[in-house]
Design a protein around this nucleic acid. Structure first.
Lengths: 195, 195
DNA sequence: ACCTGAACACCGTTCAAGT
DNA sequence: ACCTGAACACCGTTCAAGT
Protein backbone atom coordinates (compact mmCIF):
# COMPACT_ATOMS: atom_id res chain seq x y z
CA UNK A 1 0.00 0.00 0.00
CA UNK A 2 1.64 3.28 -1.08
CA UNK A 3 2.30 5.83 1.61
CA UNK A 4 3.20 9.48 0.95
CA UNK A 5 6.87 10.33 1.44
CA UNK A 6 7.59 11.93 4.78
CA UNK A 7 10.68 13.69 3.47
CA UNK A 8 12.38 14.53 0.17
CA UNK A 9 15.81 14.40 -1.42
CA UNK A 10 16.16 18.17 -1.41
CA UNK A 11 15.26 18.33 2.27
CA UNK A 12 17.79 15.61 3.01
CA UNK A 13 20.58 17.32 1.09
CA UNK A 14 19.81 20.68 2.64
CA UNK A 15 19.79 19.20 6.14
CA UNK A 16 22.99 17.28 5.45
CA UNK A 17 24.82 20.32 4.13
CA UNK A 18 23.74 22.32 7.14
CA UNK A 19 24.91 19.59 9.46
CA UNK A 20 28.22 19.38 7.62
CA UNK A 21 28.74 23.10 8.00
CA UNK A 22 27.87 23.25 11.67
CA UNK A 23 29.49 20.06 12.93
CA UNK A 24 32.02 18.94 10.32
CA UNK A 25 32.17 15.93 8.03
CA UNK A 26 32.91 13.35 10.71
CA UNK A 27 29.74 14.34 12.55
CA UNK A 28 27.65 14.20 9.39
CA UNK A 29 25.85 11.05 10.33
CA UNK A 30 23.03 9.23 8.62
CA UNK A 31 21.17 9.07 11.90
CA UNK A 32 21.53 12.77 12.53
CA UNK A 33 20.45 13.66 9.03
CA UNK A 34 17.44 11.40 9.44
CA UNK A 35 16.62 13.05 12.74
CA UNK A 36 16.89 16.49 11.12
CA UNK A 37 14.36 15.63 8.42
CA UNK A 38 12.05 13.74 10.74
CA UNK A 39 12.49 10.11 9.77
CA UNK A 40 14.41 7.14 11.12
CA UNK A 41 17.87 6.29 9.88
CA UNK A 42 17.05 3.44 7.51
CA UNK A 43 14.51 5.54 5.63
CA UNK A 44 17.28 7.66 4.13
CA UNK A 45 18.32 4.70 2.03
CA UNK A 46 15.12 5.07 0.03
CA UNK A 47 16.40 8.43 -1.20
CA UNK A 48 20.17 8.02 -1.21
CA UNK A 49 22.42 5.08 -2.03
CA UNK A 50 24.70 5.49 0.96
CA UNK A 51 26.61 8.11 2.92
CA UNK A 52 29.08 8.67 0.09
CA UNK A 53 26.21 9.39 -2.25
CA UNK A 54 24.93 11.99 0.17
CA UNK A 55 28.36 13.62 0.24
CA UNK A 56 28.29 13.70 -3.56
CA UNK A 57 24.89 15.39 -3.57
CA UNK A 58 26.10 18.00 -1.11
CA UNK A 59 29.04 18.64 -3.42
CA UNK A 60 26.75 19.00 -6.42
CA UNK A 61 24.63 21.47 -4.51
CA UNK A 62 27.64 23.46 -3.39
CA UNK A 63 29.48 23.58 -6.70
CA UNK A 64 26.33 24.89 -8.37
CA UNK A 65 26.00 27.65 -5.83
CA UNK A 66 29.69 28.51 -6.13
CA UNK A 67 29.46 28.37 -9.91
CA UNK A 68 26.63 30.87 -10.05
CA UNK A 69 28.45 33.21 -7.68
CA UNK A 70 31.53 33.07 -9.88
CA UNK A 71 29.53 33.67 -13.05
CA UNK A 72 27.82 36.63 -11.47
CA UNK A 73 31.15 38.11 -10.38
CA UNK A 74 33.11 37.66 -13.61
CA UNK A 75 31.39 40.23 -15.79
CA UNK A 76 34.02 42.91 -16.23
CA UNK A 77 35.39 44.19 -19.50
CA UNK A 78 38.89 43.62 -18.28
CA UNK A 79 39.89 39.99 -17.82
CA UNK A 80 42.29 40.98 -15.04
CA UNK A 81 39.39 42.36 -13.07
CA UNK A 82 37.48 39.17 -13.74
CA UNK A 83 40.35 37.12 -12.38
CA UNK A 84 40.47 39.19 -9.23
CA UNK A 85 36.72 38.92 -8.84
CA UNK A 86 36.85 35.15 -9.27
CA UNK A 87 39.54 34.74 -6.63
CA UNK A 88 37.72 36.94 -4.14
CA UNK A 89 34.47 35.11 -4.82
CA UNK A 90 36.11 31.77 -4.12
CA UNK A 91 37.52 33.10 -0.88
CA UNK A 92 34.17 34.61 0.09
CA UNK A 93 32.40 31.31 -0.51
CA UNK A 94 34.99 29.50 1.56
CA UNK A 95 34.45 31.95 4.40
CA UNK A 96 30.69 31.51 4.24
CA UNK A 97 30.91 27.71 4.07
CA UNK A 98 34.34 26.54 5.21
CA UNK A 99 33.44 22.89 5.69
CA UNK A 100 31.56 22.73 2.42
CA UNK A 101 34.40 24.40 0.53
CA UNK A 102 36.93 22.03 2.06
CA UNK A 103 34.82 19.12 0.95
CA UNK A 104 34.67 20.22 -2.68
CA UNK A 105 38.27 19.40 -3.56
CA UNK A 106 39.09 16.97 -0.81
CA UNK A 107 40.67 13.62 -1.46
CA UNK A 108 37.81 11.14 -1.72
CA UNK A 109 36.62 8.03 -3.49
CA UNK A 110 35.43 8.85 -7.00
CA UNK A 111 31.87 7.93 -6.13
CA UNK A 112 31.77 10.69 -3.52
CA UNK A 113 32.91 13.50 -5.83
CA UNK A 114 30.58 16.05 -7.35
CA UNK A 115 29.74 15.54 -10.98
CA UNK A 116 32.35 16.39 -13.57
CA UNK A 117 29.99 18.36 -15.83
CA UNK A 118 29.32 20.77 -12.97
CA UNK A 119 33.07 21.19 -12.63
CA UNK A 120 33.36 22.07 -16.30
CA UNK A 121 30.60 24.62 -15.91
CA UNK A 122 32.19 26.21 -12.84
CA UNK A 123 35.57 26.43 -14.53
CA UNK A 124 34.36 28.23 -17.63
CA UNK A 125 34.64 31.86 -16.44
CA UNK A 126 38.18 31.27 -15.25
CA UNK A 127 39.23 29.66 -18.52
CA UNK A 128 37.70 32.51 -20.48
CA UNK A 129 39.42 35.24 -18.49
CA UNK A 130 42.75 33.49 -18.50
CA UNK A 131 42.68 32.85 -22.23
CA UNK A 132 42.60 36.60 -22.87
CA UNK A 133 45.76 37.14 -20.85
CA UNK A 134 47.89 34.06 -21.33
CA UNK A 135 46.84 33.18 -24.84
CA UNK A 136 45.06 30.12 -26.14
CA UNK A 137 48.08 27.84 -25.99
CA UNK A 138 48.73 28.37 -22.28
CA UNK A 139 45.08 28.67 -21.37
CA UNK A 140 44.75 25.45 -19.41
CA UNK A 141 48.13 25.65 -17.70
CA UNK A 142 47.51 29.26 -16.71
CA UNK A 143 44.05 28.46 -15.37
CA UNK A 144 45.54 25.66 -13.30
CA UNK A 145 48.23 27.96 -11.99
CA UNK A 146 45.69 30.54 -10.97
CA UNK A 147 43.26 28.13 -9.38
CA UNK A 148 46.03 26.23 -7.64
CA UNK A 149 47.19 29.44 -5.98
CA UNK A 150 43.69 30.55 -5.00
CA UNK A 151 42.69 27.13 -3.78
CA UNK A 152 45.92 26.60 -1.91
CA UNK A 153 45.69 29.96 -0.21
CA UNK A 154 42.08 29.42 0.79
CA UNK A 155 42.73 25.88 1.96
CA UNK A 156 45.63 26.93 4.14
CA UNK A 157 43.64 29.82 5.53
CA UNK A 158 40.75 27.51 6.38
CA UNK A 159 43.10 24.99 7.93
CA UNK A 160 44.56 27.68 10.14
CA UNK A 161 47.99 27.13 8.62
CA UNK A 162 49.01 30.80 8.43
CA UNK A 163 50.43 31.08 11.89
CA UNK A 164 53.65 32.94 11.29
CA UNK A 165 51.94 36.28 11.85
CA UNK A 166 51.67 38.93 9.18
CA UNK A 167 48.59 40.27 7.45
CA UNK A 168 46.78 37.43 5.71
CA UNK A 169 44.47 39.73 3.75
CA UNK A 170 47.49 41.64 2.50
CA UNK A 171 49.16 38.37 1.54
CA UNK A 172 46.09 37.42 -0.48
CA UNK A 173 46.10 40.69 -2.37
CA UNK A 174 49.86 40.47 -2.83
CA UNK A 175 49.55 37.06 -4.42
CA UNK A 176 46.57 38.04 -6.51
CA UNK A 177 48.29 41.11 -7.90
CA UNK A 178 51.52 39.33 -8.72
CA UNK A 179 49.72 36.41 -10.24
CA UNK A 180 47.54 38.47 -12.52
CA UNK A 181 50.59 40.42 -13.58
CA UNK A 182 52.46 37.20 -14.32
CA UNK A 183 49.94 36.25 -16.98
CA UNK A 184 51.29 38.58 -19.57
CA UNK A 185 52.98 36.62 -22.31
CA UNK A 186 56.48 35.97 -21.01
CA UNK A 187 58.64 36.79 -24.00
CA UNK A 188 57.67 40.27 -24.83
CA UNK A 189 60.98 41.66 -25.82
CA UNK A 190 63.88 40.33 -27.79
CA UNK A 191 66.52 42.12 -25.85
CA UNK A 192 65.60 42.65 -22.33
CA UNK A 193 65.15 40.13 -19.64
CA UNK A 194 61.76 39.20 -18.50
CA UNK A 195 60.00 40.94 -15.68
CA UNK B 1 53.26 -5.67 39.44
CA UNK B 2 55.12 -4.00 36.58
CA UNK B 3 55.06 -5.75 33.24
CA UNK B 4 57.31 -4.90 30.29
CA UNK B 5 55.65 -2.92 27.50
CA UNK B 6 54.56 -5.09 24.60
CA UNK B 7 54.74 -2.18 22.14
CA UNK B 8 56.11 1.34 21.93
CA UNK B 9 55.03 4.79 20.84
CA UNK B 10 57.30 4.75 17.83
CA UNK B 11 55.95 1.38 16.73
CA UNK B 12 52.42 2.67 17.14
CA UNK B 13 53.06 5.82 15.13
CA UNK B 14 54.85 3.91 12.40
CA UNK B 15 52.03 1.38 12.13
CA UNK B 16 49.43 4.12 12.17
CA UNK B 17 51.13 6.11 9.44
CA UNK B 18 51.43 3.00 7.32
CA UNK B 19 47.78 2.21 7.84
CA UNK B 20 46.84 5.79 6.96
CA UNK B 21 48.79 5.58 3.74
CA UNK B 22 47.41 2.25 2.64
CA UNK B 23 43.78 2.58 3.70
CA UNK B 24 43.07 6.28 4.23
CA UNK B 25 42.24 8.30 7.31
CA UNK B 26 38.74 6.95 7.82
CA UNK B 27 40.10 3.42 8.02
CA UNK B 28 42.81 4.45 10.45
CA UNK B 29 41.21 2.78 13.42
CA UNK B 30 42.44 2.34 16.96
CA UNK B 31 41.61 -1.35 16.77
CA UNK B 32 43.50 -1.85 13.54
CA UNK B 33 46.52 0.03 14.82
CA UNK B 34 46.44 -2.09 17.95
CA UNK B 35 46.22 -5.22 15.85
CA UNK B 36 49.18 -4.08 13.76
CA UNK B 37 51.42 -3.63 16.79
CA UNK B 38 50.18 -6.78 18.53
CA UNK B 39 48.08 -5.52 21.41
CA UNK B 40 44.39 -5.05 22.09
CA UNK B 41 42.61 -1.79 21.40
CA UNK B 42 42.45 -0.35 24.89
CA UNK B 43 46.19 -0.75 25.40
CA UNK B 44 46.88 2.05 22.94
CA UNK B 45 45.49 4.51 25.43
CA UNK B 46 48.50 3.89 27.64
CA UNK B 47 50.68 5.43 24.92
CA UNK B 48 48.40 7.93 23.24
CA UNK B 49 45.71 10.22 24.59
CA UNK B 50 43.15 9.45 21.89
CA UNK B 51 42.82 9.05 18.14
CA UNK B 52 43.34 12.75 17.51
CA UNK B 53 46.59 12.58 19.41
CA UNK B 54 47.70 9.73 17.19
CA UNK B 55 46.90 11.81 14.13
CA UNK B 56 49.00 14.63 15.59
CA UNK B 57 51.94 12.28 16.13
CA UNK B 58 51.69 11.06 12.54
CA UNK B 59 51.76 14.67 11.41
CA UNK B 60 54.82 15.40 13.53
CA UNK B 61 56.58 12.41 12.05
CA UNK B 62 55.66 13.39 8.51
CA UNK B 63 56.51 17.08 8.76
CA UNK B 64 59.93 16.19 10.09
CA UNK B 65 60.59 13.87 7.19
CA UNK B 66 59.33 16.44 4.72
CA UNK B 67 61.36 19.13 6.40
CA UNK B 68 64.59 17.23 6.08
CA UNK B 69 63.88 16.46 2.44
CA UNK B 70 63.31 20.14 1.76
CA UNK B 71 66.45 21.18 3.61
CA UNK B 72 68.49 18.67 1.67
CA UNK B 73 67.07 19.92 -1.64
CA UNK B 74 67.42 23.66 -1.08
CA UNK B 75 71.19 24.01 -1.23
CA UNK B 76 71.78 25.89 -4.47
CA UNK B 77 73.60 29.14 -4.85
CA UNK B 78 70.71 30.55 -6.80
CA UNK B 79 67.52 31.10 -4.80
CA UNK B 80 65.42 30.52 -7.90
CA UNK B 81 66.84 27.04 -8.15
CA UNK B 82 66.12 26.51 -4.48
CA UNK B 83 62.52 27.52 -5.00
CA UNK B 84 62.14 25.08 -7.83
CA UNK B 85 63.78 22.34 -5.82
CA UNK B 86 61.47 23.02 -2.87
CA UNK B 87 58.36 22.82 -5.03
CA UNK B 88 59.46 19.61 -6.68
CA UNK B 89 60.37 18.12 -3.32
CA UNK B 90 56.92 18.90 -1.95
CA UNK B 91 55.34 17.30 -4.96
CA UNK B 92 57.59 14.26 -4.68
CA UNK B 93 56.72 13.77 -1.03
CA UNK B 94 53.04 14.05 -1.87
CA UNK B 95 53.44 11.38 -4.52
CA UNK B 96 55.25 9.08 -2.12
CA UNK B 97 52.73 9.62 0.67
CA UNK B 98 49.52 11.09 -0.72
CA UNK B 99 47.36 10.38 2.32
CA UNK B 100 49.99 11.64 4.71
CA UNK B 101 50.55 14.80 2.70
CA UNK B 102 46.82 15.47 2.54
CA UNK B 103 46.65 15.12 6.28
CA UNK B 104 49.36 17.67 6.96
CA UNK B 105 47.37 20.74 6.01
CA UNK B 106 43.87 19.38 6.32
CA UNK B 107 41.16 21.14 8.25
CA UNK B 108 41.22 19.65 11.74
CA UNK B 109 40.77 20.42 15.41
CA UNK B 110 43.81 22.23 16.80
CA UNK B 111 44.66 19.30 19.03
CA UNK B 112 45.14 17.10 15.97
CA UNK B 113 47.59 19.37 14.17
CA UNK B 114 51.32 18.81 14.09
CA UNK B 115 53.37 21.04 16.33
CA UNK B 116 53.89 24.62 15.34
CA UNK B 117 57.65 24.64 15.99
CA UNK B 118 58.07 21.88 13.42
CA UNK B 119 56.16 24.05 10.97
CA UNK B 120 58.52 26.94 11.58
CA UNK B 121 61.46 24.67 10.97
CA UNK B 122 60.02 23.28 7.74
CA UNK B 123 59.24 26.74 6.43
CA UNK B 124 62.71 28.18 6.93
CA UNK B 125 64.30 27.21 3.59
CA UNK B 126 61.38 28.67 1.67
CA UNK B 127 61.49 31.93 3.60
CA UNK B 128 65.21 32.20 3.05
CA UNK B 129 65.02 31.64 -0.70
CA UNK B 130 62.09 33.95 -1.14
CA UNK B 131 63.69 36.75 0.85
CA UNK B 132 66.51 36.94 -1.68
CA UNK B 133 64.10 37.44 -4.55
CA UNK B 134 61.18 39.41 -3.19
CA UNK B 135 63.02 41.42 -0.58
CA UNK B 136 62.67 41.46 3.16
CA UNK B 137 59.47 43.46 3.22
CA UNK B 138 57.53 41.06 1.03
CA UNK B 139 59.21 37.95 2.38
CA UNK B 140 56.24 36.49 4.21
CA UNK B 141 53.64 37.40 1.60
CA UNK B 142 55.82 36.00 -1.16
CA UNK B 143 56.44 32.77 0.73
CA UNK B 144 52.71 32.39 1.24
CA UNK B 145 52.07 33.01 -2.42
CA UNK B 146 54.58 30.39 -3.41
CA UNK B 147 53.48 27.77 -0.94
CA UNK B 148 49.81 28.43 -1.67
CA UNK B 149 50.41 27.71 -5.32
CA UNK B 150 52.49 24.60 -4.71
CA UNK B 151 50.16 23.25 -2.06
CA UNK B 152 47.08 24.02 -4.12
CA UNK B 153 48.50 22.34 -7.18
CA UNK B 154 49.56 19.27 -5.25
CA UNK B 155 46.27 19.06 -3.39
CA UNK B 156 44.25 19.23 -6.57
CA UNK B 157 46.47 16.70 -8.24
CA UNK B 158 46.07 14.33 -5.29
CA UNK B 159 42.34 14.87 -5.24
CA UNK B 160 42.13 13.97 -8.91
CA UNK B 161 40.74 17.38 -9.72
CA UNK B 162 42.68 17.94 -12.93
CA UNK B 163 40.25 16.26 -15.26
CA UNK B 164 40.08 18.70 -18.14
CA UNK B 165 42.85 16.90 -19.96
CA UNK B 166 46.17 18.55 -20.76
CA UNK B 167 49.62 17.74 -19.48
CA UNK B 168 49.65 18.08 -15.70
CA UNK B 169 53.45 17.88 -15.45
CA UNK B 170 53.74 20.66 -17.98
CA UNK B 171 51.21 22.70 -16.04
CA UNK B 172 53.32 22.28 -12.90
CA UNK B 173 56.45 23.49 -14.64
CA UNK B 174 54.52 26.31 -16.29
CA UNK B 175 53.29 27.53 -12.92
CA UNK B 176 56.65 27.08 -11.28
CA UNK B 177 58.47 29.05 -13.94
CA UNK B 178 55.99 31.92 -14.00
CA UNK B 179 55.86 32.07 -10.24
CA UNK B 180 59.59 32.21 -9.74
CA UNK B 181 59.78 34.89 -12.40
CA UNK B 182 57.03 36.88 -10.69
CA UNK B 183 59.12 37.36 -7.57
CA UNK B 184 61.21 40.11 -9.02
CA UNK B 185 60.26 43.43 -7.46
CA UNK B 186 57.14 44.59 -9.28
CA UNK B 187 58.00 48.19 -10.09
CA UNK B 188 60.67 47.84 -12.68
CA UNK B 189 59.12 50.58 -14.78
CA UNK B 190 61.82 53.13 -13.93
CA UNK B 191 63.49 51.57 -16.91
CA UNK B 192 65.61 49.28 -14.90
CA UNK B 193 65.09 45.77 -13.85
CA UNK B 194 65.81 44.23 -10.53
CA UNK B 195 68.63 42.24 -8.98
C1' DA C 1 53.38 -0.36 34.89
C1' DC C 2 51.13 -2.16 31.26
C1' DC C 3 47.62 -5.20 29.24
C1' DT C 4 42.97 -7.22 28.96
C1' DG C 5 37.83 -8.28 28.53
C1' DA C 6 33.60 -6.28 29.25
C1' DA C 7 30.83 -2.54 28.69
C1' DC C 8 28.75 1.85 26.77
C1' DA C 9 27.19 4.86 23.35
C1' DC C 10 27.57 5.37 18.88
C1' DC C 11 28.30 4.35 13.72
C1' DG C 12 26.58 2.50 8.43
C1' DT C 13 23.80 -0.64 6.40
C1' DT C 14 20.45 -4.52 5.50
C1' DC C 15 16.09 -6.57 5.75
C1' DA C 16 11.77 -8.39 6.89
C1' DA C 17 7.62 -6.49 8.45
C1' DG C 18 4.29 -2.90 8.73
C1' DT C 19 0.97 0.62 6.39
C1' DA D 1 5.88 3.17 -2.12
C1' DC D 2 7.79 4.51 1.81
C1' DC D 3 8.79 3.93 6.73
C1' DT D 4 10.11 1.19 10.82
C1' DG D 5 12.42 -1.79 14.49
C1' DA D 6 15.63 -5.22 14.93
C1' DA D 7 19.88 -6.88 13.80
C1' DC D 8 24.89 -7.07 12.36
C1' DA D 9 29.54 -5.72 12.25
C1' DC D 10 31.99 -2.14 13.41
C1' DC D 11 33.69 2.28 15.83
C1' DG D 12 36.19 5.27 20.20
C1' DT D 13 36.71 5.18 24.83
C1' DT D 14 36.42 3.92 29.87
C1' DC D 15 37.32 0.99 33.66
C1' DA D 16 37.84 -2.58 36.85
C1' DA D 17 40.49 -6.59 36.95
C1' DG D 18 44.52 -9.18 35.96
C1' DT D 19 49.82 -9.81 35.99
Amino acid sequence: MPTPPRTSLTAIVRAARHLLETDGLEHLTMLRVAQAVGVRGPSLYKHVRDRGDLVRLIGNDAIQELSSRVSAAATHENPRQDLQAIARTLRGFARDYPETYSLLWARMPDAWRFDQDLNVLATEPLLRAVACLAGEADRLAAARMFFAWAHGFITMELAGAFRLGGDVDAAFEFGLGRLVAAFSPPVRSQKSSQR
